[in-house]
Nucleic acid binder design. Structure first.
Lengths: 389, 389
DNA sequence: CTGGTCCGTGGGAACCTTTCCACGGCGAGA
DNA sequence: TCTCGCCGTGGAAAGGTTCCCACGGACCAG
């Protein structure tokens, strides 16, 4: 391929001039620029991004590491991050850890080696992104969806525990007092948060721990959702509601229930988590807690770009937490004949079924120092999570 | 960050030696290697991928351009391509054209500028990937899912027209003779193929063109699916079956029908295209044509890597076409009181409902010259599309 | 008329690696 | 004993860009 030197030779100009002409530098005569441009076109010159990145020591690329490429929770993030970055002239290098810690670590290494300008990371262990700090302390990193620990690293997360709590509130309101939670891998921070919210809400409603089992599983996927549901049907006849804490396990749960002929919501209420587009044509449409995924992805990109552009003040971590909202559909109904229920048919559905789903759940949030200072949290976050100055 | 030079200085060795030691070159004394490695660890040395790529003139990265990051059709591809590449030590640079030709072209340019080693491209115009040939004739490109034209470029595609045909066959078998097709943008090659298959099958069954309208739309998305369905309900009371030629428009169609109180399949049969995981818990579970997306993605990666590794023989395009299979569920039933129907209740469901969905549809396919020579096509493809030697 | 400034350009250094070549030493075969 | 070849190493070139500095000319003010 043609290089700058070739263009220089063709035009009889020096390399510096050609470079300036091509990169829009003001100090170059218009005619010269014309000449250079036509020569470049003629030779089919394509500037070498590698060489430029090497010289300028920034590559206009950022890495995104997600644990699962077939989960709309993350692909939505990837999508909007990609858009946000593209708008600012950055490329996205997408990696997938498959939730394997070793792969995660390798990917991190590979990304710093390839000299990306920043990384958005969904960590899959408690160590999280701290490894990048060892590799390159100056590399901006923001954690997404999951938070690794007490390290001072930027993060954009959903309010998982509040979501769990709202779903439990909803179920309790309908008279359920025996609720099973289908959780994911125990060591993920999202799992922890969702379980914590679940337990806390149960306590608040004076539900007994043994009435509200939590089933940890190998992954947030359809098979586990189905398997856990089987387990519940087999071993816990007292349970009247299932809280599947991810969209995929909810799908699996529904599948298993449908196959076993268990009617939803008459015999069993089911709630999901997050709100993929197919939740309202499933059979039945699912009650769930929706997180503003697009906003979250955009925010992650914004926080990262801000860090890339302005030098980072050490220890000054920026944690943004997004609220979601309860979306009530027809997969939840009054508990069947379980003590307090006054409706033996169990058929009275929640009143607010089929409410519109896709409106802007949280106010347009601003990054601290990017303008308005309001964090998107409605109530002040716990100390560990609030942006600390 | 520490560089090779720093390590050389630290150890008192020359750059060449340090480089060799670190890159596993055999000609270096084990003790020396030890020394270098410990010094590198001590300094936190991270090799600079940019410099290496520049020197070796290959970057171990490949680009993937898809038109829509929220469509499981493409994200599935992205996922498996990513895995396949990672296994061979390549990174994936993911770009999204949003189906905008200008963006597509820009992305192509940006990728060749960043010196990826190859590109997998879902073209969004008929020109397709030919632009890369101008930019860099040696850059391996494989087109995915859509085929741009008569250019000699590798491609991995699904057998869209056969899929359409099989769905039409299925509907006709059930007595439908007025079938509306919800198509996508008219200029996409997938749309063309699906419409062609539809028309052809209609002709074969002697259905009249005016009984089988094709609705072209702005995009393969939920809104268009819903809008088109409204249009059909309003303007075409004769239609008894809707062929939504993508998973998302099927979703929109179902949504619209449910909202209008039109029963599926009693009042209207619906078939989708492709087979996202939620198609069998939708209300009702959808009959569809499933394409082996994982195999297709893997094949695309394989074809590309093969091209990267072995010099391309000009004009020798390798086109692989994947068969899918009909998946019959309960969204299709005998046509309502439409002439031939012998079942006035319209309730006799297709016999094969709930058949297993996720088995290996097509035999493990081999790339030409990568071992076995059998193409994954069951019957010989048309001349224009067969791998030509 | 001269000194200073700005403009446009050329040349070289720097970015960091890999790779090639050369060189000294040493063991083995002639 | 001499030579050949191999081994381990050092040095330098190359890869393609950007950035800094210097330089000549023109222009302006004193």
């Amino acid at each position: 391929m043609a290089t700058l030197k070739d263009v220089a030779q063709e035009t009889g100009l020096g390399l510096g001039t050609v470079s300036r002409a091509l990169s829009g530098h003001p100090r170059v005569r218009p005619e010269t620029r014309q000449q250079v441009e036509s020569a470049a076109r003629k030779l089919g010159y394509q500037s070498n991004g590698l060489a430029r990145a090497l010289r300028q020591s920034h590559s206009n690329a950022v890495g995104l590491i997600i644990p699962d490429l077939e989960n709309e929770f993350y692909t939505t993030a990837a999508s909007v991050v990609q858009s946000a970055l593209a708008a600012e002239g950055y490329r996205l290098v997408l990696c997938c850890s498959n939730n394997i810690p070793e792969v995660d670590a390798t990917l991190l290494g590979s990304l710093v080696e390839s000299r990306v300008d920043g990384i958005i990371h969904v960590p899959c262990t408690a160590e999280g992104s701290v490894r990048t700090r060892e590799l390159n302390p100056d590399l901006p990193v923001v954690e997404y969806a999951r938070q690794s620990g007490g390290y001072a690293v930027d993060a954009v997360i959903g309010d998982d525990d509040r979501g769990s709590a709202e779903l439990v509130d909803h179920l309790v309101e309908l008279g359920h007092r025996h609720i099973a939670m289908i959780a994911g891998p125990a060591d993920l921070s999202t799992t922890k948060a969702r379980v914590a919210g679940f337990r806390q809400a149960c306590r608040r409603h004076r539900l007994l721990n043994r009435d509200c089992p939590v089933l940890y599983g190998p992954a947030y996927d359809v098979d586990w959702g189905a398997a856990a549901t089987e387990e519940i049907l087999r071993g816990r006849p007292d349970v009247t509601a299932i809280f599947a804490s991810s969209s995929r396990s909810a799908l699996g749960s529904l599948k298993a229930l449908n196959e076993r002929g268990v009617r939803v919501p008459e015999d069993m209420s089911v709630v999901g988590f997050l709100n993929p587009m197919w939740f309202d044509v499933s059979d039945p449409p699912l009650t769930t807690y929706e997180l503003p995924l697009s906003d979250m992805g955009a925010m992650a990109a914004r926080v990262l770009l801000e860090r890339i552009r302005s030098p980072r003040a050490a220890g000054d971590a920026n944690v943004v937490r997004f609220q979601g909202r309860l979306v009530v559909r027809s997969s939840t109904a009054r508990a069947r004949s379980q003590g307090t229920s006054s409706d033996p048919t169990g058929r009275s559905r929640a009143p607010a079924a089929r409410e519109p789903v896709r409106d802007a759940a949280s106010p347009p949030a601003k990054v601290r120092r990017a303008g308005a200072t309001s964090a998107p949290t409605r109530k002040p976050a716990s100390a560990a999570l609030a942006p600390h100055e």
